[in-house]
Structures are given as C-alpha cells and as structure tokens.
Design a protein around this nucleic acid. Sequence first.
DNA 1: CACTTGACGTGGG
DNA 2: CCCCACGCCAAGT
Length: 100
Amino acid sequence: MNDEFKVAVYSAIGSVPEGFTASYGYIARLAGQPKHARAVGYLLKHLPKDSSLPWFRIVNSKREISFPFGTSSYQRQLEALQAEGISLDNGKIKKEFFVG
DNA sequence: CACTTGACGTGGG
DNA sequence: CCCCACGCCAAGT
C-alpha cells in the first residue's frame, strides 16, 4: 500500500462527522480503493498512538463493532460511541447514526 | 517464494 | 435474519 492511500484513508476517517459512524468499506470507497476495506482495518489497527482520528466511528457493514463482544477493545469503542450520543440496538448501530 | 492472518464485504440459500 | 463460501489484499513468517 502506498502513502497516497494512507493519506486518503486518514482524511476520509477524519471526514466522518461527530455523532455518526461509517463502514470500513465506505472509507475505502472514499479513498478511491473500493476493494481495500481490510487495508482500512489494518491502518486503524496500526494508528500512531498520538493520532487524533475518530477511529471509533468506524464499524463494519453489518453496523457492528468489529471486535469480539466482551473484549476491552469492544468496550472502549462502545463507550467512545455512546459518549457522543451514538446508541446501539442489540449490538448494531442504530441506522440513524450510520452512513455508508 | 508459499502459506497464513485479519478492526472486511457480498451474494446465495 | 443467520450462515457460508468466496473474493480481496497488505503484512508477517
């Protein structure tokens, strides 16, 4: 993967408005690489510790947090989302908070 | 090289 | 809605 793509992905993630979520695939599409949803996941996983990107606003296409339920990672993301008013319904982001 | 892994997505049944 | 096979692709081993 090239820097061009990384930058586009970071930019796309930064463009997701507060109070909303977007899918990995949607970010990949915005970055001009529709088939790179997984690469988006890779980049998020390896985000620099100091990054201020809203990583928690990215969920999978089923509108679920992409961490196994019950893990601390899952919990961290859930809390970050709820902190800005995004609520889930049976593990799924309510559609009114989801774009893409 | 050739496998394997993983914060993914989609179409079909 | 659930489950599954398959497609995809960067990194790691």
